[in-house]
Design a protein around this nucleic acid. Sequence first.
DNA 1: AAAAAATTTAACCTGATGGTTAAATATTAT
DNA 2: ATAATATTTAACCATCAGGTTAAATTTTTT
Lengths: 208, 208
Amino acid sequence: MVAKKDSTEYKILEAAKNVFVAKGMEGARMQEIADEAGINKALLHYYFRSKERLFEAIFSEIIKYAFPKLTKVLHSDSDITSKIEQFVDAYLNILIKHPFIPGFVMKELNRDPSGLFKLVTKFGIDPQPVFKNIKEAMDKGEIVQMDPRHLAINIISMCVFPFAVRPILSFVVFKDDKQALENFYAERAEVIKKFVINAIVVNNEENE
Amino acid sequence: MVAKKDSTEYKILEAAKNVFVAKGMEGARMQEIADEAGINKALLHYYFRSKERLFEAIFSEIIKYAFPKLTKVLHSDSDITSKIEQFVDAYLNILIKHPFIPGFVMKELNRDPSGLFKLVTKFGIDPQPVFKNIKEAMDKGEIVQMDPRHLAINIISMCVFPFAVRPILSFVVFKDDKQALENFYAERAEVIKKFVINAIVVNNEENE
DNA sequence: AAAAAATTTAACCTGATGGTTAAATATTAT
DNA sequence: ATAATATTTAACCATCAGGTTAAATTTTTT
């Protein structure tokens, strides 16, 4: 059940999200979350019982936000290249709006993978149907033959990784020029789609 | 200066690496590092002064190990596609031998980017010459025209990201089948090279 | 052999931190 | 109006954790 805007619970969730995203589960301090929510620290425990549970509430909310938008495009009846393009567009749309997600999720993935495992199981996320769909397209000669898992991880890697390494990317490549970095991110969807299509579609002279 | 094998300092560094990699800078406990090194906790401070400095010693050693192997292949006189292939081979070689590196480095990148910034500056890592080299190859028509930065980040993303998400990749795609995962990683170099060459080399019918 | 330096140790310190509690206050139900 | 429930608060607790210290021991230097 969703907390009403302006309620104490809502304020806690917003503050907790800000602090957990910035500092991580271990680095975040309950007093800092309370300060940012403008409440007494004891209330954090009154509403959420423990730091761990508060964190889980935030983490699952983030995962719950992103996953459906991605799996939805994969269950359409489009041909494989359209699906890939829609998937890339959907993914970049989410990442541009919420660029903190990859760094945050991957930090917590490596700290304690079981949390994400539970959510994956809970949401019934299963890539096998997607791999099967890709395999069928390969067998029909629509795209080149390769292990569908490699194709999937190639696409996801190009989508997510640049956001996950945002700090070092900004520093090394963009010299902390925020606008240039935003422009780079804005171009990613088109670049990835073209790159992938070029890599996998057979005899693709028309689009050269 | 390198610590002699079997010396206390060497034991500390090995133990610290194990614990920092597993738990991260914040999650690691000095007592646990001492226990694993088989020494009194005070010795950690005697040799390294603070937890932060001990961590920095480990972190820079890891970065120092990996970077030269990668930049070396980029400074050869080969044509661009050979360079890309050598780079991918070198990168995957390192990652397969030390699969913990991406998860660890990215976790610390997001916790405190300045540490990595300092190392990048210290080692004089500058991608501009590589971008220039790529651009020249594009202008000559050897590979398709695109922003060199996108090409570079595409390649690095496909190399690194699958290792960075190893826990969830193993869980979701490989059902914790370690051998299957290792096989997948072992195939990555060839898959990435072929994928990239297909994506960027013009009229590449011979290799189909 | 003796002195100096390096290394090691057990015990301790201080601040930080997640969590708890009893009481007060506010809100809701009767 | 009163009772019950929910919310809030200041103060506190107990443990944890990085770091320190004086003294003992070992090793190295003279």
